[in-house]
Amino acid sequence: MHIHYISEQNSILNHFLAQIRDIHIQKDSMRFRKNIERIGEIMAYELSKTLEYRAIDVQTPLGIKHTTTIAEPVVLCSILRAGLALHQGFMNFFDNAENGFVSAYRHHYDNDDKFDILVEYQAAPSFEGKNLILIDPMLATGQSIVAVLHKLHLEQKPKEIHIAVVIATPEGIDYLQKNLPENCHLWVAALDDRLNEKNYILPGLGDAGDLAYGSKL
């Protein structure tokens, strides 16, 4: 798996990352969503540098300009519900992309710290021969992403798989490396320290879905 850490060099990305972690700024859910969206735009721009392009001629009012455009189709697929704001940032840049959505959540059978990942709702186009970008803000254990990818392309083979996460842990990255094909790309905005005993990211930022859309039952 190819891993891209995009916050290693100081940029406006780190400014937005600091704000989504700040417990005082987090109280404004609209601002939290907007900052996640901005992070998605930055990640989309960085990811776009690795795609294939083809030459085109564009007619301007005064002549012809030789330039390039993305050569192959892109599919954006988000894990509900936390991925929606990040998805919007990617859509702002990949405006011609097809879109898919899938649900995945931790199911605690005995109300303890043990859980299974349940993948239920799915609405997605064909990925065959396309660039699939799977979007999920938090990479904790990595189990959700692996479960979703196994469900999405058992019978379809994307040209390339890109996984975009805002915050990741070493444990989650290690799990993806052991369970996903080598041709996958992982895009990480920030790498955090570790998981705690409940498999929450430290220092993390809390529950991204709740911060963006309100607490759930």
Rank of each mutant, 00 (worst) to 15 (best):
M1S: 11
Y5V: 02
Q9M: 11
L13D: 01
L13Q: 05
H15D: 04
L17V: 06
A18Q: 09
A18K: 13
A18P: 00
A18D: 13
R21N: 12
R21I: 10
I23G: 08
Q26L: 09
F32L: 11
R33E: 11
R33M: 12
I36W: 04
E37D: 04
I39C: 01
G40D: 03
I42A: 01
L47R: 02
L47D: 05
I56S: 07
V58C: 09
H66T: 09
T68K: 14
T69K: 15
I79N: 08
I79P: 01
R81G: 09
A82Y: 05
A85P: 10
L86C: 06
G89L: 03
M91L: 13
N92L: 08
F94M: 08
A97G: 10
F101L: 14
Y105N: 07
H107M: 09
Q122D: 09
A124I: 09
S126M: 13
K130F: 15
N131R: 12
I133R: 03
P137K: 03
A140G: 08
T141P: 00
T141G: 03
V146D: 08
V146A: 11
A147W: 14
L149D: 02
E155C: 06
E155N: 13
Q156H: 15
P158L: 14
E160T: 13
E171P: 00
D174A: 13
Y175E: 01
Y175D: 00
Y175W: 10
Q177V: 03
K178P: 00
L180E: 12
L180P: 00
E182K: 14
E182Q: 12
H185C: 09
H185E: 10
A189R: 08
L191V: 06
D193W: 15
L195G: 04
N196E: 09
E197R: 07
E197P: 00
Y200N: 05
I201P: 03
L205I: 15
G206L: 12
A208T: 06
A208G: 07
D210L: 12
L211A: 05
A212T: 09
